[in-house]
């Protein structure tokens, strides 16, 4: 095979691989968290407290990360099949609020108030509110353990 042909084939392979990578990257969906290992495991009270102290490292450690939070179910909100589960304790209005992944609504529907659970989701931040209670907010949550 001539040198020119080898170079041409190599360039075509590189272009094809780059194109395939670009296509797959462009169409990449957010992964189902049921298949992902949590980078952090923590109790709801400890997570809320960590954010309340205002330590800058807390945001870096948890926000945008897959976190498994254990605690007691204190509220279940079902708005047309869209579930939000609040975990925490009844002595205050603070909670870890988990917006459940719609693919896992059936599991969310099996939860009940007072149940001990571990929910896994992506931490999106902290809302400090004296009137309504402070919340750590999690997205795309799935039930890890109940």
């Amino acid at each position: 095979m001539s040198k020119k042909k080898i170079i041409l084939i190599s360039v075509l392979i590189v272009v094809a691989v780059a194109g395939l990578y670009g296509y797959r990257e462009f169409n990449r969906k957010n992964p189902d968290l049921a298949t992902i290992e949590a980078t952090e495991q923590i109790h709801s009270d400890a997570l809320i407290q960590a954010f309340k102290t205002g330590d800058k490292n807390t945001a870096t450690r948890y926000i945008g990360k897959v976190v498994a939070v254990s605690g007691t179910v204190k509220e279940i909100i079902n708005e047309d099949g869209v579930y939000t589960i609040a975990i925490g304790n009844d002595t205050n209005m603070d909670a870890v609020r988990c917006s459940m992944d719609s693919l896992h609504s059936k599991e969310a529907a099996t939860l009940s108030k007072g149940l001990s659970v571990t929910l896994k989701g992506v931490c999106t931040g902290f809302n400090a509110d004296e009137l309504l209670g402070s919340d750590v907010v999690m997205n795309r949550c799935v039930v890890e353990k109940k």
Binding site: E25, N27, K29, N30, R140
Partner: peptide, 16 residues
């Protein structure tokens, strides 16, 4: 109203 910007979910991860 208050919203956490990281809480917006897109269909495609790259877009998000």
């Amino acid at each position: 109203f208050a919203v956490l910007m990281k809480g917006f979910e897109f269909e495609r991860a790259l877009m998000q």
